[in-house]
């Protein structure tokens, strides 16, 4: 028996479920690095504000008060008021819910679709691979903003149509990534061993390949979130996303554009919010890439 690498903490690790331990280690790893800690902080802040935002809001985000239109930031209105006298601070707080909804739905839709198409194409190969990858290529051959514009134009402008349009354009890179990862795993001995045990293709994909692809897909999704927020803001700006009076950040910038010269606060604060959140997701994605790097697996 070779007990050379027995580490003393193995027994106490076994008492907790493995996923809890790895999540804990992951968060600790992210917190060590200031940039990824910022990303994690932004994500946490976004979730907290979306939940308790209405308690912090000083005004109703929809009530118009034309006598107080375009007020500069003051103690009464922290971030000033917009052209209809609505409190920008309160609207930003309510806007976090919309941003989080977009991010949430897009990730939930795009992740599984991309992962399924990529792993199935990569593992089965042959004709299935050709068909699935050509479909992916077709989606990839359009710039994503233009393609989502086309989808929204066809579906009609609204927040949920914008989400659908963004989802439709965001899955192909994930599928590509999952396929490339799958191709590196399908020839390994542990997949051969699973085949020799009589595992079906579905079982091999689900139990052996998906867990291996998941880290890079999660990293990619997180990095994608920045793009998704910007695309949503872009669609909102063009009037094809969230419709007034919804306090979507992109739409707020769009309507504030006309007053930009005299009243800088109308576009500045939503702009800062978009910037902070998309930067946060980028940094979080970078941090996750370092943390989930397979070479560092042994440390967890």
């Amino acid at each position: 028996m070779t007990d050379l690498n027995l580490t003393p903490n193995v027994t106490q690790k076994a008492s907790k479920p493995q996923w809890l331990v790895s999540t804990q280690n992951l968060v600790l790893f992210l917190l060590k690095n200031p940039t990824s800690a910022y990303g994690l902080f932004v994500l946490a802040l976004l979730i907290i504000l979306a939940i308790i935002g209405p308690l912090l809001a000083t005004h109703d985000p929809y009530i118009q008060d034309l006598r107080n239109a375009l007020q500069a930031p003051s103690a009464e209105h922290y971030f000033g008021t917009d052209e209809l006298g609505r409190d920008i601070y309160s609207r930003l707080l309510y806007g976090t819910r919309i941003s989080l909804t977009i991010i949430g739905i897009v990730s939930v839709v795009v992740g599984p679709i991309g992962l399924t198409i990529g792993t199935v194409a990569g593992y089965l190969g042959g004709k299935v691979d050709t068909v699935l990858m050509r479909i992916t290529d077709i989606f990839l051959s359009f710039p994503s903003l233009i393609l989502s514009l086309a989808f929204v134009a066809a579906l009609g402008p609204s927040l949920y149509n914008a989400i659908i349009a963004i989802s439709l354009t965001a899955w192909p890179p994930i599928a590509r990534l999952a396929r490339a990862e799958t191709l590196t795993f399908r020839q390994t001995d542990y997949i051969a061993a699973a085949r020799l045990q009589g595992a079906s293709s579905f079982r091999i994909i689900w139990r052996s390949i998906v867990p291996m692809c998941l880290p890079s897909v999660i990293i990619r999704l997180t990095l994608n979130m920045a793009v998704v927020i910007l695309t949503a803001a872009g669609l909102g700006f063009l009037g094809l996303g969230a419709q007034p009076p919804l306090p979507e950040w992109g739409a707020m910038i769009a309507t504030g554009r006309r007053y930009m010269i005299d009243s800088w606060w109308v576009v500045t604060f939503p702009g800062i919010a978009i910037f902070c959140v998309s930067l946060g997701f980028n940094l979080l994605g970078d941090g996750l890439r370092d943390a989930l790097d397979p070479k560092q697996l042994n440390r967890r």
């Binding site: 001995d189 051969a192 697996l297």
Partner: peptide, 14 residues
């Protein structure tokens, strides 16, 4: 059943 050459590659790491 088969036993493979490389024990580092024949067990699923996760």
């Amino acid at each position: 059943q088969m036993v493979f050459q490389d024990p580092y590659g024949s067990l699923h790491p996760r």
